[in-house]
Design a binder for these strands. Structure first.
Lengths: 203, 203
DNA sequence: TCCTTTACGTACATAGTGTATGTATCCTAT
DNA sequence: ATAGGATACATACACTATGTACGTAAAGGA
């Protein structure tokens, strides 16, 4: 026989939103620490002080839960990037630079790196991940590169490779220490310049 | 009751090696097409015309099977890269360039991209993957960058970000068409130059 | 106050992993 | 040559995790 721990009325609309939020927070916490497959829905439920039924009610399956977690983290990162870029003035090149460095800093904090960079592409599958990433994060990079005058036929390829470089740099920073962070930013500056300067192309 | 399809003596040493190879081939095929979690050990066993028992005998669990598959593909790619680099003469810069382009071409063929770039880091976990990748693939890039005179304090960061750029480029090529391939190679050349030329550093 | 909807909790069906066990064949030592 | 272990599988079973069907109680509008 199940007995409610707290006698607070859990079924009101506000309370329901709160439990959904609790579940999501627990999911982000556990997924970022142990990875998708090593975390069971029951684990998430326990950490959120609910049963699996509640999880399946708010998020229709385990993938939905993970997807929601990834989207939440992605929005946080994107917000930080956009805010930094907008605060850096009008020059598109300066905005690009600032945005890239802000991305590196934002994604290496609050355990976003593992979920967003390592697991999301695999767990969600490429099509869904690409769509999510394109709509939220990469699109800003693409637009910034376009604004600074990257050759149109290289725009997509440049976006992809610069994005890949930043993602790998982020994972490398997370794994290493803060000394690595400075080096990563320095190398990133070089790559940004290369992406912009046509004179450096070709052998 | 199970009846052997072929009456060939399956238990000899050579035959055992053959079935192990068959199982690995089936695993590579299925994992690359459907992904790790969507493929069951039973699926692999069926495709290799054995039972799950044989799979668990040769590879002690599902992760071991995947690990073996990844290692095999990685060796193939590494061989192609080394061969191309050695055929390109003595100049370390030319070797670096040739090797990078060879990597991009090798990893985008024979379905290595999905297993090695998308799934392996997640499935195997970062520590094991990093170790495997460092010992086989990234180490060549690192050595080549070192030979061309990259600043020591930026060597690791440069290796990571260039590697990340190439990996993302590979996934982008696989997803797109052959027109994308040319653009990817062109952008990659720019990034390589940037990694080498100190004058492009800083804002 | 009734009635539908929401928000959960519970029980079960199913699938997939790993392991224990059985058996036939190979290999080696005597 | 043969006995005895080791190898190469196949089979059966236990356990875990997912998802779903169902039950219940409270919320909120009619």
């Amino acid at each position: 026989m199940y007995v409610k721990e707290d006698d607070m009325p859990r079924a009101s609309a506000a309370a329901a939103a709160q439990t959904a939020q609790d579940i999501l927070a627990a999911a982000i916490d556990l997924f970022s620490e142990h990875g998708f497959s090593a975390v069971s829905v029951d684990d998430v439920a326990r950490q959120a002080h609910v049963t699996r039924g509640a999880v399946y009610h708010h998020y229709n399956n385990k993938l939905g839960l993970f997807s929601a977690a990834a989207e939440k983290l992605q929005n946080r990162v994107a917000d930080a990037v956009v805010a930094a870029a907008e605060n850096s003035g009008e020059d598109p090149l300066r905005q690009l630079r600032t945005g890239c460095h802000a991305f590196l800093d934002a994604i290496t904090t609050e355990s976003a790196a593992r979920i967003l960079l390592a697991e999301a592409p695999t767990v969600l599958g490429w099509c869904q991940w690409r769509r999510m990433d394109s709509e939220n994060s990469v699109v800003h990079l693409r637009d910034a590169l376009e604004a600074t005058g990257v050759a149109p036929h290289l725009l997509e390829a440049t976006t992809a490779q610069l994005s890949g470089a930043m993602n790998e740099a982020a994972l490398w920073i997370v794994e290493g220490g803060s000394a690595d962070r400075d080096a990563a930013h320095e190398v990133l500056d070089r790559l940004i310049n290369a992406a912009l300067d046509p004179s450096t192309g070709g052998p």
